[in-house]
Amino acid sequence: MSASDEADPPGPVPRESPATIRSPGAGDGAPVSEFRRRKLEEDAQKNWDLFYKRNTTNFYKDRHWTTREFAELKACREFEAQRLVLLEAGCGVGNCIFPLLEEDLNIFVYACDFSPRAVDFVKQNPLFSTERCLAFQCDLTKDDLKASVPSETVDVVTLIFVLSAIHPDKMKQALENIYQVLKPGGVVLFRDYGLHDHAMLRFKPGNKLAENFYARQDGTRSFFFSREFLENLFRQVGYEPVVNEYVQRETVNKKEGLCVPRVFLQSKFRRPMK
Rank of each mutant, 00 (worst) to 15 (best):
A3T: 15
F108W: 04
L101M: 07
G194L: 01
K172T: 12
G206F: 06
S115A: 10
F59N: 01
K142R: 12
P31D: 09
I166S: 02
Y52L: 05
K39S: 15
C112T: 06
L40E: 06
K53M: 13
N253S: 14
T220F: 03
F121C: 06
L50H: 13
F136W: 05
T66C: 07
V260A: 13
N55C: 10
S267P: 00
E250M: 14
E102K: 14
G185A: 08
F234V: 01
P261F: 04
D197M: 04
Y214M: 01
T67E: 00
Q82Y: 07
A44D: 12
N47H: 10
G25Q: 15
G238E: 03
T220S: 04
Y214W: 07
F79I: 14
K61E: 12
E6D: 15
G90W: 00
K46P: 12
K268L: 10
L189Q: 04
F136N: 02
P14Y: 12
M1F: 15
L195V: 10
S164V: 07
T220W: 03
D192W: 03
F136D: 04
E6A: 13
P99L: 05
L209E: 06
Y52A: 00
E211I: 12
V188Y: 05
D169F: 13
E6S: 10
F223L: 06
K170M: 11
G186D: 01
N232H: 11
K183S: 06
R191W: 08
K204H: 14
E250I: 13
Y52W: 08
E69S: 10
P261S: 08
K183R: 11
N232A: 09
D104K: 05
F234I: 00
D139Y: 07
S151D: 13
F190K: 02
C259K: 15
I178A: 03
G257I: 09
L265P: 02
K74G: 03
D62R: 15
S23Y: 15
R37T: 10
Y214H: 02
L140Y: 03
M171G: 05
L265C: 03
P184N: 10
I178D: 01
E80I: 07
F234Y: 04
I178K: 01
N106W: 07
Y179S: 02
G186W: 03
F128W: 07
R37K: 14
F269E: 00
N212Q: 12
A165C: 12
S148V: 11
N177V: 07
E6K: 15
N232D: 11
V122M: 05
F264A: 12
V247Y: 10
A165L: 09
A71K: 12
F108A: 03
D139H: 07
S148W: 10
S267Q: 06
E72Q: 00
T158W: 03
E42L: 14
K204A: 13
A111Y: 00
T251C: 14
N95T: 08
I107S: 00
